[in-house]
Amino acid sequence: MNKLAKWGLTMPATILVVALLVIPVLATIATTFGEPKGVFSTYQAFFNSGFRTNILYRTLRIALITTAISLVIGFLTAYVIAQMPGRLKSIAIIAAVFPLLTGVVVRSFAWLIILGKNGILNSSLMSLGIISEPLSMLYTEGSVIVAMVYLFVPLMILTLTGVLEGIPRDVVEASASLGAKPIATFFQVILPLAMPGLIVGAVLVFTGSFTSYATPQLLGGEQMMMMGTLLYQRAMVTFDWVGASTIAAIMVVITIAVVSIMSRMARRLNPMAV
């Protein structure tokens, strides 16, 4: 009876995930090896194309920079939030949750208004007399990175606030009462204890920005394509499905590699684990 129940209850979800996610994604990857010119010919074509490898490197670079900036901003802000008294803390958390729950299209769109040729930043800089001609800030790596940092900082703040609140008060007080200066406590006690959480946050932001579509579509455009926008373009504009599948396969491999390496690192660096 139990045996029937436990398999029966998991069956619908298992079938749906296997039939509509696992098999289709594996099929997508499998089509890249079926080319008449050779098993790896589509990958050779990808890596021999300066245009496409540039997009891969750009995507990795943007994802890394976004992750680094989000980590620093998120960690420092979460550190402040964790010390706040109850009421102020709730307000801070609401202020971080609100953008997080607002859609990626809306949040990317805001930066179009800010960074556009006739946008707020250009018009303020011009009225202040700092520049005389509007700067072209959109469709650059910078504009994509700013919008991505904006997208992921709330996620980092909330993840790390949870992590920092989990650090027992006694540990911090013990460090202080044993004579450690606040800076030393921060680097030698709090930072190591928060390390697994920082890695989790970094993985979320890296994979999120590496595979993003809407933000590079809006703020990068044709000039600053990323892997996500390149995949879409190959699939839906030029109908080069094998090419799109190759991009998909590369994205899957890199994502899995990053997730597995980082989660192994998180386990090793966890000072609480014995």
Partner: peptide, 17 residues
């Protein structure tokens, strides 16, 4: 898996399948 697999890859694979 639906959050581990890149969403854009998942979307493209769903379209094909």
């Amino acid at each position: 898996l639906p959050i581990l697999v890149p969403e854009i890859v998942f979307g493209f694979s769903l379209l094909k399948s």
